[in-house]
Computed example of a mutant assay.
Amino acid sequence: MAKRTVLRLVYLLLSLPMIAVAILCYLFNFGNVRLYYKQCINAARKNNKTYSQELIQCLYFGEDKRGQSHLGVDYIGVFRAILSIVKGQLQGASTIEQQFVRTVIGRYERTLTRKLLEQLLSHLVCLRLTKLQIAESYLSIAFFGTHMQGVTSLCDRLAPKSYDLSFYAGVVARLKYPQPKRESQVWAAKHLNRTEWIMRQYNSANKAFKTDSQRSAFSV
């Protein structure tokens, strides 16, 4: 708990300058920030889908493990991504807020300008909406594969026999590896590995939580 509190404070201090810039861009509508922001808020308001806690947790473990601590932009992840680029590797640092914003405004060009816009909007969205609202809104419109726009269309196509941890982890795995029109062994292997990795993260975190709860109970 103390570690998360410190982490939140660090993210707050790192985010304040960008939040100030984001507010100024909104007030003066630099780069159509106000228009894009309204599109994001309207998309969240239109969403009437709710999802199980297991799916939401899988989303965070798979896409944004520090998502409950930052304010829309994971600056620790950004720093690590920059270091990986310097080393000749590629590592993403997009948060759920950023992925939601990107999907709503439809901007996918690989430029620093687009990335900066995305970060500014993510801060603004995070100030207005709850983490759960953003996560559920994103899941409702995210691209999971061919003819799979949002969790509802994915379920309609796959018609799962059961909704369990394995299924939810597989849903989130498709964010990194969208399901192609024709499945291949290569895609299936990548998807399976990603699914199992998310499940391990989920089980490990919940095991740690139960252990901490038991320790707290004994210390009372």
Rank of each mutant, 00 (worst) to 15 (best):
H147E: 15
I19N: 01
L158R: 03
L132G: 06
F28T: 00
Q91P: 03
V101Y: 04
N193D: 13
A43E: 03
I85F: 07
S140C: 15
C126L: 06
R157Q: 14
C126V: 02
A189W: 01
R8Q: 10
K131E: 04
F209S: 15
R107F: 13
I19V: 04
L139N: 04
I76Q: 03
I85V: 08
L121D: 01
T113M: 13
G31Q: 05
I76F: 10
Y177D: 04
S69D: 14
S122E: 08
L158N: 05
N29G: 03
V10W: 03
E109D: 13
G92T: 09
L83D: 06
N47P: 07
V172Q: 02
Q57D: 12
K65R: 12
P178F: 01
F218Y: 08
L120A: 01
V10C: 06
A93F: 10
Q68M: 14
D74Q: 09
I82P: 05
R102W: 01
F144K: 09
E136L: 04
Y108D: 09
Q99V: 00
H191G: 12
M18T: 06
S213W: 12
L129Y: 00
S219W: 01
T211L: 12
S166Y: 11
L55T: 09
L35E: 05
L13R: 13
E196D: 15
L116D: 06
L14G: 03
R215Q: 14
Q53R: 11
A208C: 07
Y168N: 10
K131F: 05
W197K: 05
N47Y: 00
S137E: 00
V104K: 04
C58N: 00
A93H: 01
R66G: 00
V171I: 12
L124Q: 01
K65P: 12
V73G: 03
I96K: 12
Q185T: 10
K210D: 10
F28G: 01
D156I: 14
Q201C: 06
I198V: 11
L27S: 04
Y168K: 07
S216D: 15
K49G: 12
R128N: 15
A173I: 06
Q53L: 10
Y26M: 09
E196I: 07
V186M: 10
R110K: 08
A217R: 12
S162Q: 15
E118T: 04
F144S: 03
F143Y: 13
